[in-house]
């Protein structure tokens, strides 16, 4: 089945254009409203798959390794991403614990695992089983992935505590930084282009 995909439409003002031929690092913007309507692919499928696998490994690190630890008088205490959600579960604000766990764990885990799956099949020039619903789910999940905000939150926490006690960034924090960049790059830029390749 073929679609009229030689025409692209600006999602901000509904202007229609013929799909432009883009060179590397080029993007096309809408004449009418200035929104970005098309980008050239940043990575080859091989590179995208490699980075998704990297992201999956980082995700595993972020799940189990602390992002920060503190030391006072020989006592050491550390916190992982999950600990931060659980800490909010005490008392009357349990709803926020769920929200934080959703935005910093559930969504990224889903994104990373589905992207790895989709890119792995795209490498063999195939559509992965469940291609359609996973692509749609990834598009819907994208605004709710908040790892980069958590990263800034961790840095703010370091400074907030540093006057009173010794705070150290842990391995998890660096993994978190890498993971948030990978997810932004993959989910926002190259993943939607799979619609145009795989048939």
């Amino acid at each position: 089945m073929s679609y009229p995909s030689d025409i692209i439409i600006c999602e901000y003002c509904d202007s229609a254009y013929h799909r432009p031929q883009l060179a590397r690092n080029q993007k096309a913007t809408c004449q009418r409203c200035g929104g970005i309507i098309a980008r050239h692919r940043m990575l080859s499928i091989d590179q995208a798959l490699a980075l998704s696998v990297t992201a999956a490994l980082m995700m595993a690190v972020v799940c189990f390794v602390p992002v920060l630890f503190i030391r006072v008088q020989g006592q050491v205490h550390s916190a992982t991403l999950l600990d931060a959600s659980l800490a909010l579960a005490q008392g009357p604000i349990g709803l926020m614990a769920l929200t934080v766990a959703f935005a910093t764990l559930t969504v990224p885990i889903l994104q990373v695992s589905m992207m790895t799956w989709l890119f792995a099949f795209a490498r063999k020039h195939q559509r992965a089983p469940g291609f359609r619903w996973q692509m749609r789910a990834l598009e819907a999940l994208r605004p709710w992935s908040m790892l980069e905000v958590f990263l800034l939150g961790a840095l703010v926490s370091v400074v907030k505590l540093s006057g009173r006690l010794d705070v150290f960034p842990a391995v998890g924090l660096f993994a978190l930084a890498a993971l948030s960049m990978l997810i932004i790059g993959l989910a926002g830029r190259d993943l939607p282009l799979l619609w145009n390749d795989a048939r």
Binding site: F150, L161, L165
Partner: peptide, 22 residues
């Protein structure tokens, strides 16, 4: 979504600073 910052800071600080002398 950058406004979620304070929520994350609250969660992380509460997770780190529990019990203990400090």
């Amino acid at each position: 979504y950058w406004s979620m910052l304070d929520v994350f800071v609250a969660g992380l600080l509460s997770a780190l600073v529990q019990f203990g002398v400090f």
